[in-house]
Amino acid sequence: MPGISAETVPSPAPRGKYPLPRLTKPKAPAGTIYRGNVGMWSWVLHRITGVAIFFFLLVHILDTALVRVSPEAYNAVIGTYKNPIMGLGEVALVAAIGLHALNGLRIILVDFWAWGTKHQKLLQWIVVILWIILLIGFVPRHLMNVFSE
């Protein structure tokens, strides 16, 4: 018996009845509703902040572990957290965590709550506003602590 060749398989969709969609090649990979939109930037920032916090946490567990070495060793390292350059680094860290946390909560609301999906633009703005409020509460007080004697 001869093998079944492509020609012997009946065409699943008769042409006339189901016209094939016309596909045109896009000229540039731009102009989707997603690319370049706020949704893309919040995703990029969520990624970058997540990675940054992860690496901070790796170091932070090691520096805290110095309490098992000696009080002097721990104080020497935690002392570096108090200098002005590190103080600015802590502002950046809190800003990153604040953004990741608020944006994470937004993702969760959009995933589980139909209202959140429908009003996701509004939620984006709420994230930005709460983030600014958080930083207004934190940054001046922290900088006063860092730069005071």
Binding site: V67, P71, Y74, N75, I78, G79, Y81, K82, G87, E90, R141, H142, N145, V146, S148
Partner: peptide, 8 residues
């Protein structure tokens, strides 16, 4: 005193 109070 925030971060200034942290020590062993």
């Amino acid at each position: 005193d925030g971060v200034k109070a942290l020590d062993f």
